[in-house]
Design a protein around this nucleic acid. Structure first.
Lengths: 126, 126
DNA sequence: CTAGGACTTGGAGTGGACTCCAACGCAAAC
DNA sequence: GTTTGCGTTGGAGTCCACTCCAAGTCCTAG
């Protein structure tokens, strides 16, 4: 559930963040550990409290991960973001290269989907 | 290179089969071991000789694998093929279910590709 | 005939990305 | 204030699909 510090800055426990981001709690901790997520804010007793900003970033990570970007390259992207605005050109290059990879993957899937359809048609004709 | 038993039935060494199928030699041996490929014909001294029929089957496996079918399900499909023509309806069901999965994957990729494009546009606008 | 590359085996090892564990502390509901 | 369950840690374990290894045999070009 939502845990509010004040009216304008909602925060989320790791469980709630998992539910909202689509990552498991373990994956969220793992991503923080390897530097994919900046150190998350903590309560006085050490529990994580994710912000909407964290969730937005997690959305980007989810997109990159689900389109097949390796963790190492996501980490590189995270580093670029941390380094500041002067890395934006490189971020664009990285994303463009990834988009090309996604396009190729989709084209390959489309071709192979047709092959499967052909196989199905063949089986239907027997 | 091609190793012909006679004019009508070319066979291929594992190296040549690897080159033609796009699998590594190790993967071909592994697939045979776990039953994805029927026992391959051998020379008197035990070396494998793949046929055009084997290559065709490998093409199907490559298509299924590259579209994300788990090895276990490919093995199930291979079993159905071995069991004979009466399993054709089930093979059709399996392939149709897989095609649905591929379609979903493509739709997901397309949506996420758009997200990436949006991100690129945003970075370009900064 | 010989050199060098291709092939054989069973089994162990790898890489990527998590996923689980134990033993504990903290929180929210009643 | 106690129970129920969510959260913490470091490190070990898992899963999938290969991939590599060693020690040996086979094949073919010259």
């Amino acid at each position: 559930m939502l845990v509010a510090d004040n009216a304008t800055a909602p925060t989320y426990t790791i469980g709630e963040c998992a539910r909202r981001s689509g990552f498991t709690m373990d994956t969220l901790r793992y991503y923080e550990r390897i530097g994919l997520i900046d150190d998350v804010r903590r309560t006085a007793t050490g529990q994580r409290r994710f912000t909407d900003g964290d969730l937005e970033w997690l959305g980007t990570l989810k997109c990159l991960r689900d389109t097949g970007m390796p963790v190492e390259q996501m980490a590189r992207f995270a580093d670029l973001v941390r380094e500041g605005d002067h890395t934006i050109p490189e971020r664009i290059r990285l994303l463009e290269a990834h988009r090309v990879a996604v396009d190729e993957r989709m084209a390959d899937l489309a071709a192979k989907r047709d092959y499967i359809s052909g196989k199905i048609d063949y089986y239907r004709s027997v």
